[in-house]
Design a protein around this nucleic acid. Structure first.
Lengths: 340, 340
DNA sequence: CTGAAAGCGCTTACAG
DNA sequence: CTGAAAGCGCTTACAG
């Protein structure tokens, strides 16, 4: 157990204590701390020994005033989506052997909250920012990126010069789904998408769907519905669709949770899955595997997205300025909900 | 859109700029910033006007070196459990009209990671800590609480003097479940609990189960299994139980996700729910409502737990030292999985 | 009620 | 390679 002192900081071990103990200057200790250039091995090991002996830990606030805090900020739209925990796991893996740690903020898919979090993280001197599925506009993103290293996950901005992006190939996701369903004999394939004005990846996925439907000579069956994020909105949209007049044979849903809601509504309406309605989700979250769901879904390797974004961010913090745009390839995981 | 300057902080608006603009001292600005005692209305409004005009935002690092950062740290064991997002929503609600903001850390249910996060948050000068389902031992908890205001959610420690606790009445949860199942005619009721040496709330819930079984004259049917957290471990434990020799009539699961896994395994084994096996979960997370699950569960109002804990923490930061132990009452939400 | 000055724990030129 | 000193943006006694 670490020794923890009784009073609020009056006797916190500082760089000065370490310097005294090691018989060197505070500047020397600071250099060792930052792995900076120009310290002899002898001095370094003396200082390291004193740090260990005194159980020294640098105070992030003090570091933040002059240099780095070694803390990265991550902003998630929604803690509920289990896909984001895959991303988080990937980020944590990338950070394991580095001095960086992670702070999280939840924007609840609200632009105004997200902006507040970004500002907070700048005020808290985070060394860099990772934004997942950002709701901010391009102007603000570029402005933030101008003062802080930044990576966006799930946001297409291939032309952005100021920050990196890490994405799934969302057009390909939709194409894979349409091809799979067509292969299983479905022709009337609809898409249940998200009502949102901010997401560029929704656009990509809808584009992929439309393109592949046309490619398959099914252009006349193209049907994109959009619903909000709440269960109530999803249920209403689903009921309306399944009450006709024209009921699709298959439905490609924006994300697994929506697909599970559709399974629920369809089941309640007495429809059999996949005989009366095939259903495909997206993200391949762990609920897909349950026998009661057995949901076909597209896997986009959140872990890889997270890993890559953390690495890119650290590169940027260390000085890279040319932006990179990384794309991972999705794969479809077939289960019973789409005809097996 | 907020004005964001081009260079890294060289021209950040500081308290000094505000002081110059308002024609007062930096000390005066600091006092206005902290709503401290002893500033005239005239000075206050002059300073406020300058802050707005210059779009001043205090630098958390600098504040942290001498006073508060107005940032609270929250540690979650697992981002995957949707119940935790209810808690988070409650905390956010409580923080809405305050100057406090929230930083999150994910411990992945690992003691060693959790300890690192707590240390990090102390280094980052968080004003207070909220720990959910902590895995740390009592000694370390008391030591942390001695230097930092702290509230634990989901950790029974009624004797703890150094920090507050906020809990569901977990004994009552289990009692409600047993009573409900007995009322529906089940007698052989087993409990699928979690293999963990750290959680005090698991103990409480098991205790409630045992007590109520005895109360109902079903002591001879008491059967507590424990499994790990991974799908694989849960599946293995469930299969083993359902292959006999003695198959229970009903199973009370530690948390909804485990119950959903049990539904999956039981379905695959050809068992009907609830005719062959009744299933009850805990936390009443949103998957319970899906028709394909229709899972009876215990609701413990995560939102209230979160709200209360944030309020208690702020009270502590403001000076309260006597510890409080708040308990919310659970209620059972009946669905088809337990016989309706 | 208001302000000048010291200091929090680091990092960063700069000099040796 | 090593160290003395200034400074980051705040808060806190303290004096007026």
């Amino acid at each position: 157990m670490a020794e923890i002192k009784a009073t609020r900081g009056s006797d916190r071990i500082t760089i000065k204590d370490v310097a005294t103990d090691a018989g060197v200057s505070v500047a020397a200790v600071s250099k060792v701390l930052r792995d900076a250039y120009g310290v002899s091995d002898g001095l370094r090991s003396k200082v390291r020994a004193s740090m260990d002996k005194l159980n020294y830990r640098p105070l992030a606030s003090a570091r933040g005033m002059r240099g780095q805090t070694y803390t990265l900020g991550l902003i998630l739209p929604d803690i509920r989506n289990p896909f984001f925990s895959d991303i988080l796991a990937g980020i944590n893996t990338a950070l394991e052997r580095t001095p960086y740690r992670l702070m999280l903020g939840i924007s609840q898919s609200t632009t105004h909250i997200e902006e507040g979090l970004v500002d907070s993280m700048i005020d808290s001197q985070m060394d860099g920012l990772i934004l997942i599925g950002t709701a901010e506009d391009q102007g603000r993103l570029e402005a933030t990126a101008a003062i802080k290293p930044m990576v966006a996950i799930g946001h297409f901005a291939p032309q952005s010069g100021g920050y990196d992006t890490v994405n799934n190939d969302d057009q390909l996701s939709a194409q894979l789904v349409v091809r799979h369903l067509v292969g299983n004999g479905y022709r009337h394939i609809a898409m249940l998408s998200l009502a949102s004005h901010t997401s560029t990846i929704i656009e990509e996925r809808e584009l992929g769907y439309r393109r592949e439907m046309i490619e398959q000579d099914l252009g006349s069956f193209i049907n994109v519905l959009r619903a909000g994020q709440t269960p109530r909105e999803i249920q209403a949209a689903t009921r309306k669709l399944l009450q006709g007049p024209v009921i699709p044979e298959a439905l490609f849903c924006w994300t697994d949770f929506i697909a599970l809601e559709v399974i629920s509504v369809a089941t309640e309406m007495g429809l059999r899955i996949p005989e009366d309605l095939a259903i495909v989700g997206h993200d391949n979250t762990r609920h897909c595997d349950f026998a009661q769901n057995s949901l076909t879904s597209v896997d986009q390797s959140g872990e890889l997205l997270g890993l890559k974004s953390a690495r890119l961010l650290i590169e940027r913090i260390k000085g890279r300025t040319k932006s990179e745009h990384f794309v991972v390839e999705p794969r479809i995981v077939v289960r019973q909900s789409s005809g097996g």
